[in-house]
Design a protein around this nucleic acid. Structure first.
Length: 746
DNA sequence: CACAGGTCTCTTTTT
DNA sequence: GAGACCTGTG
């Protein structure tokens, strides 16, 4: 049916009862899942009863689009989402049953760390002895096992260190609750808890989700397993899709036994294997199979393809990481010029985010457009975080953590001493820090600071009023930037760094506007949610002609015609941690990661390594990765001294010159400036400013990607952009910015 | 109270 | 190489 192979067809039609779909890399599992959804609807199942859980928002979006394409009616009521987004949606509705407020805030790992820090302080524990990182990891692991602070304490009995962790875990959880905040793990934990203690709520969702599909099942952890188990318990129509060879999130608690033992949990399960690869050339697949064959304890499967051999896999060993990056960028440039490859034909993958910098530097020098995914998270940047915390405070006044962060940013003369006094007051009267600030004049010992505090609280009140009056979120954001003086302060600085920060703030505004355009019911909570849950990889537009750079982990689920895999050295990949570990599975997980990397490539695969590399401020000399040696000799070409292509001398001369340039460039510090390339580092900024041109006017018929067709009713020029009002046939009147709406004239 | 400059440590992957 | 923390100065 529909061009599916036998196995795929079987998987599609096997709709009742539990199904385990073992789908090798590139075997068309997304295709199967979407067709399965279509088939279910075709069989008369109400789309409202279908739930599909994916690993990333991007995967969710893609599935949504594909389902929309093949299903004529009702596709939109299929619930396609990530685990976390699903939980947020459930909790927004019912978390009051667990005595949280429904407008809870989601804490990211920075916030978590700050909370842990205060906990340690309160408990008089030495952060040197109990590092925050370790505490976070322990607490996270406990939550992944669905172990409460009390249970953890019981488990710990007698073990001093664990008992200390238990204390912190307990304190941490109380603080989160006080702040009306949930961390990432809580989203799952609290949902499972909700279902456990409120069977009526669970039943409602069991009735709703009569058909459940879970993608990337090999990367689910125990609590996700529990959640699925709860939801599927009544109808048992559960289809999980995964590949044990692609399990790469053990560090995050992923439990490979979820997939290996699926048949024990669901004895009536039907198991279907998809082993035909439709993605890669035969040589690439051979390389991948050769590597993964070195792992023990995997479900036996043999990925095969009808595709032709294709090019051999290239491997090049360079002297330094700079030469490596230069070699990679040169090859991209050569193919772009000589073979007419668009830049989005290529992806550069690596084990650690730190490796991206040198590639970025070289791409800038060659004026090649690129986009880096992840790394120093955009939302983790100081200025961006500051603005988001303002928004969080506006939304949830119980969020002390965010209040503390912004109360003196920009400087208002409210220092640590004043905050401590107000905190003490808040503790005494059992109120939030912000509420204490509203009563600043009553707080003993504040004196002159009280007036300053009042000016801060007045700002927050003003912002809340604006929100009540129904302003656009982007307008609120502008107001925050302006009224807090944040923007003016940066403006006055007139440094490159301040300018870079302002650009990031503008970028944040763009994201807010975009959210407002695309969300069905945009509101502040929804915006903050999206910021917390949507990873950068989710926003990758295939159509953008840019070289993509990302970690191997981020690349999971994606594919590219040509993949460069850098840093193929022992201690980097596999990581030093894995090599030192006494757990033999650590290396196997790295190997699976390598397998994932190789299988991202459709046509060409370039591996590279450097003899010498600066790591953590030190020059390391590491041997070529063992994984390279595991690739069958007949599918790989080895090149001992740099340069994938031919012109070696020419390149060496060039590199000598550039190494000089680099020295002068690197001392200038963060905001690189390489002449007039027009490129900017980080976050994949646009390389050209697009002139906004619109070819429609009032009265014209237009089409929007999401809202469908409609008529333009108003067009207001606002600076560089236009504000367009469109009356859509299906979704009614929407106001939007022309630059984001991308309306097509009909 | 704010800021600059020094010293220290820990290096992986992320929803 | 980056971030956290401390200390001295204005």
């Amino acid at each position: 049916m529909n061009g599916l192979n036998d196995k795929q067809g079987e998987a599609v039609q096997c709709t009742e009862g539990p199904v385990l779909l073992l789908a090798g890399a590139g075997s068309g599992k997304t295709r199967v899942l979407t067709h399965r959804i279509a088939y279910l609807i075709d069989q008369g199942i109400n789309p409202y009863h279908i739930l599909a859980i994916t690993f990333t928002n991007k995967a969710a979006g893609e599935m949504r689009d594909r389902v929309d394409q093949i299903v004529s009616y009702g596709a939109e009521s299929v619930w396609v989402s990530t685990f976390h987004a699903l939980c947020v949606r459930i909790l927004r509705r019912y978390i009051d049953r667990l005595e949280y407020e429904n407008n809870f805030t989601i804490y990211d790992s920075d916030d978590q760390k700050a909370v842990i820090k205060t906990c340690l302080k309160k408990l008089n524990m030495d952060p040197k002895q109990y590092p925050e990182r370790m505490m976070m990891a322990e607490i996270s692991k406990a939550k992944e096992r669905f172990v409460s602070p009390q249970e953890y304490d019981r488990e710990a009995s007698g073990q001093f260190r664990k008992m200390q962790v238990a204390k912190v875990y307990n304190e941490y959880q109380q603080r989160l609750k006080q702040n009306n905040a949930l961390d990432f793990d809580d989203l799952l934990y609290k949902t499972v808890e909700l279902f456990q203690f409120h069977p009526d709520v669970l039943e409602q969702y069991q009735e709703r989700f009569q058909y459940i599909m879970v993608d990337e099942y090999q990367d689910t952890n125990h609590i996700q397993f529990l959640l699925i188990k709860q939801l599927a318990a009544k109808y048992r129509n559960l289809c999980v899709v995964g590949d044990d060879d692609q399990s790469i999130y053990k560090f995050r608690g992923a439990n490979i036994y979820n997939i290996l033992n699926f048949e024990e949990e669901y004895p009536e399960a039907k198991v279907i294997k998809l082993e035909q690869n439709y993605r890669s050339t035969a040589n690439i697949l051979k390389a991948a199979n050769g590597v993964i064959a070195n792992n023990e304890g995997r479900k036996e499967k043999a990925l095969w393809t009808k595709a032709e051999e294709g090019d051999k896999v290239h491997f090049s060993l360079y002297d330094t990481e700079y030469q490596e990056a230069e070699g990679v960028v040169k090859e991209i440039s050569r193919q772009h010029k000589n073979e007419n490859r668009a830049y989005n034909y290529f992806a550069i993958l690596y084990r650690t985010n730190a490796q991206s910098r040198i590639f970025e530097e070289k791409l800038l020098m060659h004026n090649i457009p690129y986009k880096i995914i992840g790394g120093q998270n955009f939302y983790g940047r100081r200025e961006v975080k500051d603005m988001i915390c303002y928004l969080k405070v506006i939304e949830n006044g119980m969020d002390d953590m965010s209040v503390r962060r912004v109360v003196n940013v920009p400087k208002r003369g409210i220092g640590a001493t004043s905050i401590d006094k107000m905190q003490a007051y808040a503790d005494t009267y059992e109120m939030s820090l912000l509420d204490a600030m509203f009563e600043a004049s009553n707080v003993p010992g504040l004196n002159r600071a009280a007036a300053k505090v009042e000016s801060f609280t007045n700002l927050i009140l003003d912002f809340r009023d604006m929100l009540k009056e129904g302003v656009f979120l982007s307008e609120l954001y502008d107001a925050v930037l302006e009224k807090t003086g944040y923007w003016d302060e940066l403006l006055a600085e007139k440094t490159d760094e301040a300018e870079a920060r302002m650009e990031n703030l503008t970028e944040l505004k763009n994201k807010i506007v975009k959210y407002e355009q695309e969300a069905e019911h945009p509101d502040l909570a929804g915006l903050l949610e999206e910021i917390a849950l949507v990873a950068e990889v989710d926003n990758v537009e295939e159509s953008e002609e840019k070289v993509l750079l990302m970690t191997l982990h981020s690349a999971k689920g994606l594919e590219f015609p040509c993949v460069f895999l850098g840093g193929m050295e022992d201690r980097l990949f596999p990581s030093g941690m894995a090599l030192n570990s006494d757990d033999p599975d650590a290396i196997e997980e790295e190997r699976r990661l390598c397998y994932v990397g190789i299988t991202r490539a459709r046509e060409q695969l370039y591996l590279s390594a450097a003899r010498q590399r600066m790591m953590h401020g030190r020059t390391d000399y590491n041997p070529v990765s063992r994984f390279v040696k595991e690739i069958p000799k007949d599918v790989i070409t080895m090149n001992g001294n740099g340069s994938f292509a031919v012109r070696r001398q020419e390149q060496a001369a060039h590199e000598a010159r550039e190494s000089l340039n680099r020295k002068s460039a690197s001392v200038t510090g963060k905001p690189y400036s390489f002449g007039n390339t027009g490129g900017k580092p980080a976050f994949g900024k646009e390389f050209k400013v697009e002139r906004l041109q619109i070819d429609y006017g009032v009265g014209d018929r237009v089409r929007h990607v999401k809202f469908g067709e409609g008529t333009v009713t108003e067009l207001v020029s606002g600076g560089k952009d236009y504000e367009v009002t469109v009356e859509f046939d299906k979704v009614g009147v929407k106001r939007m910015f022309a630059s984001f709406a991308k309306l097509k004239k009909l």
